[in-house]
Amino acid sequence: MYQANLFVPCLVDLALPDIGFATLNLLRRLGVEVNIPDTPGCCGQPFLNEGRPKRARALARGVISAVENGKPLVVPSGSCAEMIKFHYPTLFEDEPRMQAKALELAQRTFELSSFLVDELGIEGIGLDIQGKVAYRPSCRALRGLGVRSQPLALLSSSRGQGASELESAEACCGFGGAFSFHLPEVSKAMAHARLEPFLQSGAEVLVVIEPGCMTHLSRALGKHETKQVRHIASVLYEALERRARP
């Protein structure tokens, strides 16, 4: 049986546990034996973003030493995966041994959708995804990890209603962690601007791969009769569940 570690980002752990369970169950249903290592509650990204690399380093150290089992580390967040893959090694520039470990971990760290497609080779599994689905990439996954086509492949549907990428989907939704706290008005305006093409489209579900984008865009969307913003793990897991119980 394929084994993998699941890293649960702090936002998922504390605020969006459903995404955590959706990821866990999705992986299990796809035949992956999931281990949730006893890591610190956060990858350290918010601290690095705020110019506090010392604190980020302490958390990184905890994460690295909790997943020394050599198995892939799957993260249902592009930005946390990017943090681990690209920033961990730079955090330990003065500690060659830690840096070597960070680089080793970087090799086997995957954002969820790229793990499913690039690592497990799952592609176009013909999910019956209810409702028209639109997708927008997330900044760090897109630019840091090159994740763009994988979610689209996963969301392609057997009923011929594949997901489409929205217009100007590359622009940031305005979350940016503490950015949304420092400049809430600008952050909100960004979210509304990004939602516009979704609102004008026929799509009912906007799928993102980043928990942060999901909460931010959801809040900007508010209670909408027909439309919602969802994390890819929830969408995929529910679709698989439906298929299992016709």
Partner: peptide, 28 residues
């Protein structure tokens, strides 16, 4: 703080500037 670190800028810079990295450095 007026940056969400999305990284769009560094992709278009003809001078190869990694703005997000520099912004992190300055925040530090």
């Amino acid at each position: 703080q007026a940056c969400s670190l999305c990284g769009a800028c560094k992709e278009v810079c003809p001078a190869g500037i990694d703005h997000p990295m520099l912004i992190l450095e300055l925040r530090k």
